[in-house]
Amino acid sequence: MAGPILGIIAAMVRIDFNRLRFLVIEDNAHMRRILRTLLYGFGTREVYEAEDGAAGLEAFVHYVPDIVITDWAMPIFDGMELTQMIRQPGANANPYVPIIMLTGHSEKRRVISARDAGVTEFLAKPISAKSLYQRILNIVINPRPFIKSKNYFGPDRRRNTNVNYTGPERRKSNAEIIEQHPLLEKMKA
């Protein structure tokens, strides 16, 4: 989503964070504290926490959060593996749950790996109140459809339809490209 548009939207709306339940999975106690502080600062009342991927999966099944925020590098299994376990259609209560991947890895190939695991939003450290809020706002306002194929289950990896794209069409049919309505129109709806 383009930053200026998100800024306009952000000024027009508010998220009632007290109606959302978060699960934070992060092995570093300091970063958990920062995330908890920010989420409570936004107005959230329900923040559940886990220190590793295994405990995170258990908490996910138990608490059924609205939004998951997970670190990448963690003991037992990492944020990528956790995402792949959550993105199993039929295996849990909500395989569509929005997942924000929080990490110090900001290289392009890392972002692509996270995207291919089914991550919804990618949040590179250092984090700020604004960057976290923007990701959550994008999730609430602008969810993408899910794609289920032989090799992938997760949010549509095509965020935008590029009218100037001249390369080969890799999907077997063009018909599945869902028109993405401008954000302002979505808001009005």
């Binding site: 000024a11 964070f17 959302l20 306002i141 794609i147 999907r171 018909a175």
Partner: peptide, 21 residues
């Protein structure tokens, strides 16, 4: 579709938590 499904999930978060400022 031939090689994949497109799944549009109802936006419950928007209904649940978004309002005008």
């Amino acid at each position: 579709y031939a090689d994949h499904d497109v799944i549009v999930v109802p936006n419950r978060l928007k209904k649940k938590a978004l309002r005008r400022a």
